[in-house]
Design a protein around this nucleic acid. Structure first.
Length: 222
DNA sequence: GATTGATCATAG
DNA sequence: CTATGATCAATC
């Protein structure tokens, strides 16, 4: 039985704070969800579990998890020093019909306006069920962070508009990066070609680099 | 050890 | 296929 959806940010935070320190196996148990041996075949398991516990609306829409609160939920794996172990996926990147698309209208901007980060122990030597949930961090980007994100986004989107999708690597961008986001490298979707024509490319997604998310978590505890 | 490119499960 | 949830693992 899924939890009901919180009606306010304070209610959401109360639930999030209540989860701090408990094991994933305990949360899973409350919902009758089996705990996998590892995450090789269920990479989104932790995220889905936290969504269920906090009452996020299910679905696969390009909108924040708590649309009525304007809050996006992100679980993030951390090591014993509280450092993020992985980059953070934000959303898929639009590869066509992006003429005149502005930062303020982008999905990236809207999703990152308000994010609830839920750190979870992610070291592989810790059994999945034994990993504990950390203290939640409700974050809104500062002016500086917003400027960094905007700059990277605009640089990447310009390359896409110029038909250079396939030349973009994860090295582009200081805080934001573009990487493959698909079932595998054979999946194709429409994109813009060098001469403005439509061609096929591997789908891409926007990710936040580790150094950036690390700053967010650190700032929350200082 | 960090990073980049590849991949897994599921819903619609 | 697209979008959600991400982590894996080869390579730098």
């Amino acid at each position: 039985m899924p939890s009901s959806s919180p009606t306010s940010i304070s209610e959401l935070m109360a639930r999030a704070n209540h989860m701090a320190g408990i094991r994933l196996a305990d949360i899973a148990g409350e919902h009758g969800i089996p705990v996998p041996e590892n995450l090789k075949r269920e990479k989104g398991w932790v995220g889905q579990l936290i969504e269920t516990e906090l009452g996020a609306l299910a679905g696969s829409k390009p909108e924040p998890d708590f649309a009525h609160l304007g809050v996006e939920l992100k679980t993030i794996p951390i090591d014993n020093q509280g450092k993020p172990m992985e980059t953070t996926y934000i959303t898929v990147a639009p590869l066509t019909d992006i003429g005149g698309l502005r930062w303020e209208q982008s999905v990236v901007y809207h999703k990152l306006r308000h994010v609830l980060w839920i750190p979870v122990q992610g070291e592989r030597h810790i059994p999945v069920g034994e990993r504990r949930v950390g203290n939640p961090v409700l974050w809104q980007p500062s002016e500086l962070e917003l400027a960094q994100l905007r700059q990277d986004w605009e640089e990447i989107m310009e390359l896409i508009a110029l038909g250079k999708v396939d030349t973009i690597t994860a090295k582009h961008g200081e805080v934001l990066q573009l990487r493959p986001k698909a079932a595998n490298s054979r999946v194709l979707t429409e994109s813009i070609g060098r001469n403005g024509e439509i061609k096929l490319s591997n789908p891409r997604g926007f990710y936040l680099k580790i150094a950036f998310t690390q700053q967010i978590l650190r700032r929350a505890f200082t």
